[in-house]
Each structure stands twice: as C-alpha cells, then as structure tokens.
C-alpha cells in the first residue's frame, strides 16, 4: 500500500498537473473567479479522471490498438455526460453558470494524459488512485486561484461576505487576472522546486 501513498503524494505536489506539468488549464481558468464554481468543476474533473483511468485500465488488454484513442475519448465523454446530467439534476443553477465548461472536461489534457501515461500500463486500483489524486491536485490549484480572485474581486469566500469595506478590484474578476495569478503560482512553485533540487544535489 506504500506505493499508492506515493502515487497520491507526487500527483498532488511534485508532479501537480497544472503547476508542474502545465496541463489541463483550458477548461479550468475560466471558472476561477468564484470559489463555488471552481470547487464543483474540480470535483467533476476528479470524478472523471479517477473513473476513466479505472475503466481504461480495466479494459486496456481488450482494446484493439488502432482504435485506442477513440475508445479512451468515448469512455471520458461517457463520464462527462454523467457529471453533466448530475449537475443539471441536483445543482441546476451551478450547471447553468458553468455553461459549456462542463462539456469541455472531455478535452482536458489531464484526463487523457493520465489515461495514456498511467492507466494504460498499470492495474485498475493504482490507476483509480492515480486519477483521483491527479484530480485533487487540480482541484487544489483551482481553489487557490479562485481564493485570490474572489477575495480581491468580490470581497467574498464561497459567496459569503467577509465584511470588508473596500471597492472591489474589478480586474480580478476579468480574464487577465487568472493569467497573472496562475503565473505567480507557477513562479513560486518552480522556484521552490529549483531550490529543493539544488539542496538535493549538494547533500
């Protein structure tokens, strides 16, 4: 079981898909101006990544080589549709706000990336864990970005007012802010990674 723990840890930290591998940003940044939307989106991605990795690993031996990509896409789209139906049924207002971005989970590179790089070569259980924590790492980054943007842009967290008395920084709500915030996050984490590597080399 040690192995599963390692998979979990590296996926959230060292090999975090967004910050270290720069994958899967497409469908994500657009919803990071509100934390609630980021949370729902992140949970959706986690669900799809975990279960599609699991399914693909399960049937991997049976998939004919020439239609592998097609089957993978099919499986991913299947889970995305389930998420979409679920949101429409139980969280209709959030589903409306997320608009096309739920459907775009299909083209999120993380999911296909994990399917190809891990699920196709490993048994189902580790694949499930790998996909799940790749999604969790993704969720945490989305929450971090939206935390900064929602506080500065609206003065709220998850929609609850902080009681701050200031003029909201409109730019934070607008698209450019997402780029600035993620760029600073990447800067900080890569600087850490570089430092840790240097330390490791010296020791």
């Amino acid at each position: 079981m040690v192995e599963l723990k390692v998979i979990a840890k590296t996926n959230v930290t060292k090999e975090n898909q967004i910050l270290r591998q720069i994958l899967g940003i497409c469908s994500a940044l657009a919803v990071t101006n509100l934390m609630t939307n980021s949370l729902v989106m992140g949970v959706g991605v986690t669900f799809v990544t975990a279960l599609s990795s699991f399914t693909i690993s399960l049937i991997n031996q049976l998939i004919p080589q020439r239609i592998r990509m097609l089957i993978q896409t099919f499986v991913i789209a299947f889970y995305v549709i389930l998420v979409h139906l679920f949101l429409q049924t139980f969280l209709p207002s959030i589903s409306k706000q997320l608009g096309p971005y739920v459907g775009l989970i299909i083209t999120n590179c993380i999911i296909m990336g994990r399917a190809e790089a891990f699920a196709a070569k490993n048994p189902p259980l580790p694949a499930l864990v790998d996909g799940f924590f790749a999604g969790v790492g993704y969720l945490l980054v989305l929450l971090a970005i939206s935390f900064v943007r929602e506080i500065l842009g609206f003065g709220t967290i998850f929609g609850f007012s902080l009681g701050l008395n200031f003029t909201p920084w409109t730019l934070m709500v607008m698209p450019p802010a997402a780029f600035f915030v993620i760029s600073i996050l990447i800067w900080i984490t890569s600087a850490w990674a570089i430092k840790a590597e240097e330390k490791g080399r010296r020791a």
Partner: peptide, 8 residues
C-alpha cells in the same frame, strides 16, 4: 485571452 480555450 478571454475564454482560456486551447491553452495546452
């Protein structure tokens, strides 16, 4: 620049 699509 506004919809963040095709970033990868």
């Amino acid at each position: 620049l506004a919809n963040f699509l095709g970033m990868c």
